[in-house]
Design a protein around this nucleic acid. Sequence first.
DNA 1: GTCCAGGTGGTCA
DNA 2: TGACCACATGGA
Length: 273
Amino acid sequence: MKLKYIHLDKINDSGQTFRWLKLAQGHYVVPYNLGACEIIQTSEYEAEIVQEYGISQDWKHYFDEYRNYSKIDEEILNLYPQYKEATNFSKGIRILNQEAVETIFTFIFSANNNIKRIMNSVNSICLEYGEILYSKDDKTLYSFPSIEKMAKITEDEFTKFGAGYRAKYLVSTANTLLQSNDFKNWYNLSDEQLLKTLESLMGVGPKVARCIGLFSYSRESMFPVDTWIKKAIRNEYNMPEASDKQITDKINSIFTKHRGIIQQYIFYYYRFL
DNA sequence: GTCCAGGTGGTCA
DNA sequence: TGACCACATGGA
């Protein structure tokens, strides 16, 4: 399957997924549920899925093929001309539609953490409790563990995986999800209901809930505000002393459409500035 | 050694 | 509500 208007290295570095297995520049094995695909950048903004592993998956959905990013970028440039440079810099990034359990747990890990550490923690859990999706030349990719397996991990074990003070949140949320087990139906919730439901989970606050909504439930209205976004907004609008509330108010007054997508562009741009 | 990271939960006004 | 603080821990 061929994909256009896509840039794999940018997506891998965009902080929404932590588990792509990099074989080379522009060459990855990508996990999704109990399957994986091998994908190669074939030209500057084109890629091709050359092989599938494990259980067949809906890769068009995963890679967000049903959104027209070329058109979205045009609209973004019209709506937010002040972010022309960020938008061009981020060209080819997709907002992935990742599996919910994985997204919930990895973004609980992400709180007050850095991307390298998140990757190390999440990948070591998958190594211990996931199943092999791909293995070749000493490079191996594992699935994210099922909710049943996640619910058996103890607080001490999560600490061993580098969860720090988040260990008890992970235990609590694993048990909540195991009992409710209806997170697949959350696709049908309204944005408001989804946020409220996600924020009821231990370790999930406003920012993490929006990441989960954006990166797993396809909610492009959601605008996660993290430390990088705060820096960007304070800098862009010359408001160095702005409180968190002033920043979110500013964001809500400026960004009306494609909020999650422009958020991701700004995040990616400022993190590499 | 110091600062920081895709913040949250608890507490108090 | 909104402001403030403690929190684990490795990366830079």
